[in-house]
Each structure stands twice: as structure tokens, then as C-alpha cells.
Write a protein that binds this DNA or RNA. Sequence first.
DNA 1: GTCCAAGACATAGAAGCCCGAGGTATCACT
DNA 2: AGTGATACCTCGGGCTTCTATGTCTTGGAC
Lengths: 116, 116
Amino acid sequence: MPTPPKSDLPQGTLDLLILKIVALGPVHGYAIAQRLEQVSRGVVHAPEGSLYPALHRLENRALLAADWKQTDTGREAKFYRLTRKGRAALASEEASWNRLIEAVGLILQIAEGDAK
Amino acid sequence: MPTPPKSDLPQGTLDLLILKIVALGPVHGYAIAQRLEQVSRGVVHAPEGSLYPALHRLENRALLAADWKQTDTGREAKFYRLTRKGRAALASEEASWNRLIEAVGLILQIAEGDAK
DNA sequence: GTCCAAGACATAGAAGCCCGAGGTATCACT
DNA sequence: AGTGATACCTCGGGCTTCTATGTCTTGGAC
């Protein structure tokens, strides 16, 4: 593939993905971006200009909480964890996402059954 | 269903859905909104404040073309059809969408296999 | 010893999209 | 005459996203 198909995230999706990653255990921001890219096999990019504002939003909404700790390599980093509200929000957003892709799937599949 | 789960569309998704509906044959704007709502079983709403700007954008990008015709009930309406560029864009955006939901799916499914 | 890449955080600015609210006009029915 | 559905349109606020830029530290290359 000559052109790595960078796909920009639709609005609101980033929050869901962040919540999911953080739900797996405390992580700091920089690592979140890396995991998203790795796990999605390079499809999902989370530029810092999108990531950090998103983290601050989620923290302001009390879905995430953060404490400064040391990373494996002995550096200071801000580790995020899910609050109770965050766990609920993750479940809710995950459900919304599933509803959405199901609905979009319905629309994208009417090609054959159109007839009319 | 007590709460009709209104789900707002993520940014950019509306274009894809419009292109898909129009690809099935010439339609006017008002009917597009109705079909989206019907086919998605009420999940997808396309408010006029989102729909018409989107149609104009797509027309400006030469993905759609429009002509005024008579509707079944004898009223004037603007019927949209796909241009060649529009057909290509639909294919491309459909592929992007599939890549995206696949990537998001990967991220949402790492819950069990995390292990760290 | 110095330079550069990478880790790790942050903000500002521009661009873009979504939606609620409001406006116009025609037609059908009551 | 009035209501509701059909059918179009625009404005403005609000929110996200991304590019660009900046700071600081660590570790390796030269």
C-alpha cells in the first residue's frame, strides 16, 4: 500500500476509544495514542492536538481522573483511570456506537433489496 | 421503548448516507430524510438544518447534481442524482467507513485479550 | 561535549460539521 | 379559515478535530 490510508475520526468517536483504552488499566496520554494506533493496525490516529484536549474534556466531565506517577523508564507522566461515571459513560457510548453502526449498516445494505 | 434513543450522527457520516440513498435513484431532499429514518428504523435523524447544507456541500463538490422536477403529487422538488465523481466518492467513503468500524471493533474487543 | 530523536505534556488557531430555530410557499383536508 | 404535511432555505452557536508550535527531559549518536 503506497498510501497509508489515514482515516480521520468522526466527531465523538475519540472519547469512546479513549474510555475503552483507559478501562483496561491506568495509562498516560502518550501511551493511549500509541495503543490506539497499534491495536487498530495504523488506521486510527490520535494526534496530540486532538488527544490532550479530549483527555481534559473527559477529566472535566469527571469521567476520567488522573494522578502523576513514574513510568517504567522513570519519567513523570499523568496516568488516567476511569471513574464510576466514566465506566457508565463507556457502556452508554459503546451501546450508542453499536446502534449507530447497525443503523448505518442497514442503509448501506439496501443496494440489492431496493427493487422499487 | 420509553426513550427513543435519538443518536446524533458523527461528523462526516451524513455525506456517506446521502450519497448512498441518492445512488439508488433520483430523490429530493425531503424524501432523503424520510428514507434515512425509515430504513434505519428511526435511529438516524437528518434534521433539515443538517440535511440541506450537506446537500449543497455535495453539490458544490460536484458529487451530486440536481434538477427541478415534479413529484408524484405534482409538486416542484429538487431531485438529486449522483455524478460520476459522486459514484467514485461513494465507493471511497464506503471503504473508509468499513475500515473505520473494523478498526474501532478491534479496539472495543480487546477487553478479554488484554492480559497486559 | 554536543546534537538530535523520542518520550511526554500542553495550547492556540483555523476549519469544519451538526443542529435548533426561524422563515417561505404550496397543497389537502376539515 | 386554520391546521398540518410537503418542500425548500439560512443563520448562529456550539462542539471537535487537526496542524502547528512550544516546553522539558532522557538517552544515544557523533
